[in-house]
Design a protein around this nucleic acid. Structure first.
Lengths: 314, 314
DNA sequence: ACGACTTATACTCCAAACGAGCATTTCATA
DNA sequence: TATGAAATGCTCGTTTGGAGTATAAGTCGT
């Protein structure tokens, strides 16, 4: 299959690294781990690693000093124009999605490279629709409309309008929170996201913070995957503490999905699937009537792992 | 990020290649392209390639002499125990799923390496449930039961029984055609699929033909992805000729899913989504009442690409 | 102690989606 | 002309999912 000369040819020019979208939810806000504020943590894939996944686990745990509950491969990138080192070197990046919790207080020896948890909506302001921001919504719509208007020909314009409508839920097309990547790519194509240019503060507030290289695209991939996944797999629980209330669970889901859900229906869904069990205690700090504390039934992972679980969509 | 010494270290030991699960449907039978009868086509990732996907497209089209309609990345494998070259060399394989049609008669210069289309159920006999084979079903159930019985302890046994029931639709758990990979891994774990050992003809008939290295696992990954995908994306049409009848469409879906669907409901679903348009002609060779010939409405790809389409499940 | 406020929790309603079946139509062929 | 095979049209009952109403049980300020 692969002959020696081929390998030799690859040798000088191909590098393989692992890159992680590490997610936590803190104070009803999804957060991702960054290095230097604007890069996703990454590291080379080494021979010492048993597998890609264990390789990623190894050095992420080494950097964050606590274990990741859930890891899943996202996508492998190797486009020629991926920034990075300009000359002949080609970087193959295998990205992973990891779910965890922010480390408690014990900020042990600060890991190398200035790791920092950041609100993921800082990079994707338009993805948070939990409270309607009429101002930003219209501003975005106007910018998109301009792009549609500047189409070279009518046909292109029509396609563009259609894409905008679907991706951003305009003209009666409902908002679909799963289309994170499509929206990012559309904005990128519309040059509304000039990752390479400098932006004033106001633009950053509207179009989100930039990231190193194509890391923002990778983050978008991770967000999209996670938003889709929580609807049919019980992975949210990896982001919650051992015990929690149903409202806490709901708020976490809403934070990830970037939209609000109907409380009663949400509870109905959770209950009829036996996803959680009561712990017997009550949470009294809820502000209103105390809520039962519950715990995720890890034992159902065996059954549900394959079969799937449903969380409400909008 | 990646320093020079790291790259040098990788240089002698890492090889990146692309591997394809190429699917076609011929005579209501899903088929995959093999090289030498038991290997998936693969080739090295080269610097000349713009991207992974275009790299794959390039050499697959070069090998098969006709274009692939649809390509999607599957998974990247790099486990240490992936067979391949035993010594220090680590092979990173990026797998892709490609949909196409078997080339018509014009078998131009036979490509290198003896490419051959093979029925995919030859490798996964238990995945075809279109006609119930009571004999094989019970034989498999018995073998699984034995594995459950040989569990080291009761707890393991219970977990095993549960996994079998869900994966293979026993004890009232309905058959879920998407669990191709889980079933394969379960059978592998139960040592019912000794990829490395020799098998007699009878065993091969029951447990399917072996493939090179971990190619059968990769094929399982592709099958699972495709079975899941046809339910919410209009990708089946990549496997059909330009015009076809609704029954042909249904038979293709059934072939891929490995199970039969309710004809009237299937048509209702297709129609209410405007997936196809009538061509005006009739197919008279259907044996019964002639069927309207239809054509896939490619123009809806723009809309549906993001939003999704539904094909009936069982 | 009381009323206002907040959250938890229990039910009800309705419409769309879905699975299954019956009935009728329209061909080719024996 | 009868028969078989498939196409096509329609009905029915169940499930699922979205949305709303009502009530319970705490906290907190006065």
């Amino acid at each position: 299959m692969s002959s020696a000369p081929t390998i030799a040819a690859q040798a000088e020019t191909l590098a393989v690294n692992l890159i992680a979208v590490l997610v936590a939810v803190t104070d009803d806000q999804p957060r991702i781990l960054t290095i230097g504020g604007s890069a996703l943590p990454s590291g080379p894939f080494e021979l010492a690693h048993r597998s890609l996944q264990s390789g990623l686990r190894d050095w992420v745990e080494q950097q964050t000093h606590h274990p990741i509950g859930y890891v899943e491969q996202l996508y492998t990138f190797a486009d020629r124009d991926r920034g990075g080192d300009g000359d002949g070197l080609r970087m193959v990046s295998i990205s992973y999605l990891g779910l965890t919790r922010e480390r408690p207080a014990s900020r042990t020896p600060a890991p190398t490279g200035d790791p920092e948890w950041r609100d993921w909506y800082a990079f994707f302001p338009w993805e948070d629709r939990r409270q309607v921001d009429e101002v930003r919504a219209t501003a975005l719509a106007v910018a998109l409309q301009a792009w549609v208007g500047h189409a070279p020909d009518a046909r292109t314009g029509k396609v563009r309008a259609q894409r905008c409508a679907i991706a951003f839920g305009l003209d009666g097309h409902g908002w679909n929170e799963d289309l994170v990547l499509q929206r990012y790519e559309l904005l990128f194509e519309a040059a509304l996201i000039p990752e390479a240019h400098t932006l004033d503060t106001e633009s950053e507030a509207r179009m989100g913070l930039r990231m190193t290289g194509d890391h923002r695209r990778i983050l978008a991939t991770g967000m999209a995957r996670l938003r889709a996944k929580i609807k049919y797999r019980p992975v949210v629980f990896e982001l919650l503490p051992e015990t929690f209330t149903l409202l806490q669970l709901q708020r976490s889901v809403e934070a990830l999905a970037g939209r609000l859900v109907h409380k009663q229906n949400f509870r109905r869904l959770i209950e009829q699937q036996d996803l959680v069990e009561e712990i017997g205690a009550l949470a009294t700090d809820t502000g209103g009537r105390p809520a039962k504390l519950v715990r995720f039934r890890r034992d159902i992972l065996d059954e549900r792992a394959m079969v799937g679980t449903k969380l409400p969509r909008p």
